[in-house]
């Protein structure tokens, strides 16, 4: 091998060693993370994570297969010095090719079943008894209104901008409206995103398992202030939530009011 070839090889080995060290160091930083989609805190994000993991294992297997074959081929069939031979001219093998067309198709068809079940489960309308929150997005903030909780004048109470309060362990029915351009509502630990589109009211149900403070962020590019369009979801125990609602002026609550008909919703995940 030429001297320059040796340098190239050394540089490569060095780079790979460095990459390994860096990766291990980096892995330490993954643990935790307030917007970690792989550490869900509710059934919706949980289901999404499960489907991701369901797909990622067969994908990882295919990855190992293909990359393994690439490495094997390169080492096994690389030209040896002085070998000018011409290999056997294989033009194909229809049976084999049909096999590697049909096998992935079957594998994917199997994967499709839980995917579709997930689409249906996550896209359904919120249940009747769910705590309703009307979410409005405008450039560049979030507003939350609680139609089931009304103050003395009969107006729904609202939470401060960019701060949604919800009770833990209860299904929440979210309705989305945009006051201007398209935004996207995203609380990674509770649920994947849903676009907030003018004239296209979307809905989504979510549920938080435990009280806590969850971080959310607008996920559709919406102009100058997009990066700063962050919000918090404060999940409280039902008692704390009821107390909070009172403190916001609620006099009518779902338990006191006769249940109103559910708003008609279009679209949804």
């Amino acid at each position: 091998m030429s001297r320059r070839g040796v340098y190239l090889r050394r540089a490569l080995v060095g780079a790979f060693a460095l990459a390994t060290v860096v990766l291990f160091a980096g892995c330490a930083s993954i643990v935790g993370g307030a917007q970690n989609t792989l550490a869900p805190a509710g059934p919706v994000a949980g289901r999404e994570r499960d489907i991701y993991l369901l797909v990622i294992w067969p994908a990882a297997a295919v990855f190992v297969l293909v990359e393994g074959l690439v490495l094997l081929i390169v080492f096994k069939f690389r030209n040896r010095k002085g070998d000018e031979s011409i290999p056997r001219q294989v033009h194909g093998n229809p049976a084999l090719e049909v096999a590697w067309t049909v096998a992935p198709a079957i594998l994917l068809a199997i994967v499709a079943v839980p995917v579709l079940a997930g689409v249906v489960a996550l896209g359904r309308e919120p249940h009747k008894g769910a705590t309703r929150v009307n979410v409005t997005a405008i450039q560049w903030l979030w507003q939350f209104e609680y139609p089931d909780y009304k103050d003395a004048t009969g107006k729904p109470i609202s939470s401060p901008n960019n701060e949604m309060h919800i009770p833990a362990g209860t299904e929440i029915g979210l309705q989305f409206h945009s006051g201007d351009v398209i935004h996207s509502f995203w609380v990674p630990k509770l649920a994947g995103k849903i676009a907030v589109i003018p004239n296209h009211p979307n809905h989504m149900w979510i549920k938080a398992d435990h009280p806590g403070d969850y971080s959310g962020q607008c996920a559709e590019f919406c102009g100058f202030g997009h990066a700063g369009m962050r919000f918090r979801v404060i999940v409280q125990t039902p008692q704390e939530f009821a107390a909070w609602a009172k403190s916001q002026g609620a006099v009518t609550t779902p338990s006191t009011a006769s249940s109103q008909p559910q708003a008609v919703a279009s679209g949804g995940n």
Binding site: Y52, E67, G192, A219, E220
Partner: peptide, 22 residues
Amino acid sequence: TIGGLTGVTHSAVPSDYQQNDT
């Protein structure tokens, strides 16, 4: 191949609800 496989992970629709726009 890596790109094709990540593509498959977001064709699994509910998992794309998390991945979309990230």
